[in-house]
Lab assay of single mutants.
Amino acid sequence: QAPETKIVDKSRVACDGGEGALGHPRVWLQIPEDTGWVECPYCDCKYVLKGSKADAL
Rank of each mutant, 00 (worst) to 15 (best):
L29P: 06
A2I: 12
W37V: 06
C15I: 00
K10C: 10
G36A: 02
D34P: 02
S11N: 09
K53V: 12
V27Y: 06
V13I: 12
L22M: 14
W37M: 07
C15E: 00
D9S: 11
D55I: 00
K46G: 04
C43K: 00
A54H: 05
G18S: 06
L22S: 12
G51A: 05
D16A: 09
V38W: 02
K10I: 10
K53M: 11
P41M: 07
D9I: 09
A56C: 14
Q1A: 10
P41Y: 04
V27S: 02
R12Y: 12
G36H: 01
K53T: 11
G23L: 08
E4N: 15
C45L: 15
V27G: 02
G17A: 05
K50L: 07
G20Y: 01
V27D: 06
W28E: 08
A21I: 10
D34Q: 09
L22Q: 10
I31C: 08
A56T: 14
T5S: 08
E4F: 14
V48A: 02
A54G: 06
V27T: 04
V8T: 07
L29C: 08
D9R: 07
D34M: 04
C45R: 15
I7W: 03
V48F: 06
K10V: 13
V38R: 01
Q30T: 13
L49V: 13
A2G: 12
P41C: 10
A54V: 05
R26H: 06
W37L: 03
R12P: 15
R26F: 05
A14F: 13
C15S: 00
Q30F: 13
V48R: 01
K50S: 11
E33A: 11
D16Q: 09
Q1G: 11
K53Q: 12
V38S: 01
P41Q: 03
T5A: 12
D44L: 15
L57I: 12
C45W: 15
E19K: 12
K53W: 11
I31F: 02
P25N: 08
C40H: 11
P3E: 08
I31P: 04
T35A: 07
D34C: 09
E4G: 15
D55T: 00
V27F: 05
D9Q: 08
S52G: 12
V27W: 05
Q1E: 08
W28I: 10
A14H: 06
V13A: 01
L22K: 14
G51Q: 02
A21F: 06
K10A: 09
Q1V: 13
C40E: 08
R26K: 10
W28R: 05
L49F: 05
S52I: 04
W28F: 06
D9H: 10
I31M: 01
E4K: 15
E4I: 15
E33N: 06
D9M: 09
G36S: 04
I7S: 03
D55W: 00
V13E: 02
G23C: 00
A56V: 14
G17D: 05
E4H: 15
R26A: 02
I7Y: 10
Q1H: 15
G17V: 04
K6A: 02
R26M: 09
G23T: 08
H24Q: 03
Q1R: 13
K46V: 15
Y47K: 08
G18I: 05
R26L: 11
G36R: 01
P41F: 07
R26D: 07
S52R: 00
Y47D: 14
K46E: 13
V48N: 01
P32A: 06
G51H: 02
C15T: 00
S11M: 11
K10T: 14
L49H: 13
E39M: 14
A14M: 06
A21W: 07
D9W: 00
P3F: 12
D55C: 08
V48Q: 09
C45P: 01
R26W: 06
G17Y: 05
C43S: 01
V13Y: 01
K50Q: 11
C43I: 02
V27L: 06
V13T: 01
L29V: 01
C43T: 01
C43W: 03
R12S: 08
D9C: 12
C45K: 15
K10P: 01
L57V: 12
V13Q: 03
L22C: 01
L22R: 14
C40K: 09
Y42L: 15
Y47V: 08
W37K: 03
Q30I: 13
S11P: 13
V27P: 03
H24M: 02
C43R: 00
K6T: 11
W37T: 03
A21M: 08
D34H: 07
C43A: 00
E39L: 13
G51R: 00
D44M: 15
D34V: 05
V48T: 00
P25V: 12
K50W: 00
I7L: 10
D44F: 15
L49S: 13
G23P: 07
G20E: 06
E19F: 07
D16E: 12
Q30G: 03
A21L: 09
D9N: 11
P32S: 06
